[in-house]
């Protein structure tokens, strides 16, 4: 039953994703990619939960590696997206004459 429920969530999320992303203008496609990269760092949540005090040594090793890579994704992804979006200005803002 749980598999059905998870699939249900998955299908709805895919449709929602299509709706949301098709409204993003092409100007913002690069920030969109880096932002979605950061979101795909969500594996961090799974990696954190896998690092239990009673985990076998090899699982802890894999988990620590996963935490490291996913954190690069999350922190780097959000930071670089923010840096890019900061640059998108309208004509009357910023330092343009």
């Amino acid at each position: 039953m749980e598999a059905v429920y998870l699939t249900f969530v998955f299908v709805l999320a895919i449709f929602l994703g299509f709706e949301l992303i098709s409204k993003v203008p092409s100007t913002l496609h690069t920030p969109l990619m880096s932002a979605s990269n950061a979101i795909s760092g969500i594996t961090l949540i799974g990696a954190l939960a896998s690092l239990k005090t009673d985990s076998p040594g090899f699982t802890a090793f894999l988990g620590t590696l996963a935490v490291t890579f996913a954190t690069i994704n999350v922190v780097g992804g959000y930071a670089v997206t923010n840096r890019m979006l900061e640059m998108f200005k309208k004509k009357d803002q910023g330092d343009s004459k």
Partner: peptide, 11 residues
């Protein structure tokens, strides 16, 4: 993970 992954996948 499923929701966020699906959003990125769709994107």
């Amino acid at each position: 993970l499923i929701v966020a992954g699906a959003l990125v996948g769709a994107s």
